Amino acid sequence: MIDAVRDPVPQVTTAGEYVASLRDVRRRSGLTYREVAQRASAAGHWLPPSTLATMLGRTTLPRERTVTALLAACGTSAPEIERWLDLHRDIEARLCEPMRPTGRPASGESTHPAPPDSAPVAVEATGPRRSTDRPRSARRRLPLGALALVGALTVGALLPAGDGMTPRSSGTGSSGPCPLVLRQGMYGPCVLDLQERLAASGLRVPVDGWFGPDTTSRVIAFQALHSLEVSGTVDRQVLDALQDSAVSPVAWTENRISKYLRARFPEDPSEAVRLARCLSGLDPLRVEVTADGSRRWGLFQFSDTELSRLGVDRRTALDPGWNIGAARDIWARTGDFRHWTCVSSV
């Protein structure tokens, strides 16, 4: 069971601060977007990962039902959820304050005077009101609609600036502005869509909306496997290849890899398995990017330089049979595993 969010409901006054507090709730829960969606569904709510990523990537108030779903999935108690919703309504009401007439009406005047002369032209151009007694919820529609439009234009607000924007299908039937190039460090629904496409292609990756090292590793592996330029960034060519990819990588399970390692290294099978696990987590498609920008490939993490010297392309390096065979050749020359150095953090 998740340790429910114990921090008190934040004392915030703006929509942006409110959303930032919701991001903190999700982060403290330790759940990925996919896990939040699953737990929300189990609690009777509907909150797809893409919706969650969009909500937390904006600076405008989300819908109350999505707030409820997120908080329930993260283990927040019902009374605390209600307090979050009360705060949501208070902020929403403050957002509508500029649309309310100010000052006391003079004697005999209507209690709902027309907007002041300083009101935006767009508001005045909507024509005379049909009724001067509309409820407050009706008066909110215009500003909230405007805020929703602004939110839609700022979905990528947390993505680094500098890249042009282009409409792209989100994979869920909708489209939205995404950078022309996705790269490590970015965050949001566009990254979530990328991760879902990578997973669909057979590459296991956390689907959490964050373009971190794991996503970079999978992007590089995909590029190598499909003979694309190995850059670790995602442009239209990579997205098209992901869309058209019909062949999933052949997956070797950890059990199969362990058995194969023991068979190829009968002199020291336990150390062979330990070393490969330390280097790559027994993940044959693991790619690590070093501090100098070079890369290491596969189970035994052969470097770019080693692959060049061996005359092997990167796709071959990700084949577990070749990778283990190359490691065996090195062991045969040295008689041990001194070629590699890896100290497990466990």
Rank of each mutant, 00 (worst) to 15 (best):
R89N: 01
P284Q: 00
L203T: 03
R39I: 07
R39G: 04
S248I: 01
M165A: 14
D292Q: 13
L242S: 09
V205Y: 02
S294Q: 15
M165E: 14
R338L: 03
R204Q: 05
I220E: 02
T32G: 12
S294D: 14
E271M: 12
V12S: 02
D268G: 07
Q223F: 04
V289R: 15
L147E: 14
A326V: 00
S170Y: 15
E124T: 12
R139S: 11
A15E: 10
E17T: 00
R296W: 09
T215M: 09
A146P: 00
R100K: 13
P167K: 08
Q301H: 12
S308Y: 06
R277E: 15
A200R: 15
A291G: 12
E288D: 15
L144K: 05
T14V: 05
G281D: 02
V25L: 05
T14H: 02
P143S: 08
Q38R: 15
G176K: 13
T54A: 14
G212N: 04
R309K: 13
L275F: 07
E254F: 01
A20H: 07
G185I: 11
K259T: 11
A148W: 01
G293F: 03
R63Y: 15
V123K: 00
R23M: 07
R26C: 07
A146K: 04
G164W: 14
A119M: 01
G176C: 10
P177W: 14
Q11H: 02
R139G: 09
T154K: 10
A53P: 05
Y18G: 03
A272V: 06
G164M: 11
P177H: 12
A37F: 01
A148E: 09
S169L: 13
E82W: 03
A241I: 08
E80N: 08
T68W: 05
L61K: 01
E196N: 14
R34C: 09
L147N: 13
P135L: 05
D133E: 13
E109L: 08
W297N: 01
A251Y: 01
D3R: 15
A138D: 10
P48H: 12
D240G: 11
L149Q: 13
R204H: 06
A42K: 09
D24W: 04
L239F: 14
P160H: 06
G321V: 11
H88Q: 05
D208R: 09
D3L: 10
T316G: 02
G108I: 03
V238S: 11
W84G: 00
G232S: 09
A291Y: 06
L95G: 07
A327N: 03
V273F: 08
A37N: 09
D208K: 08
L275I: 13
L47S: 12
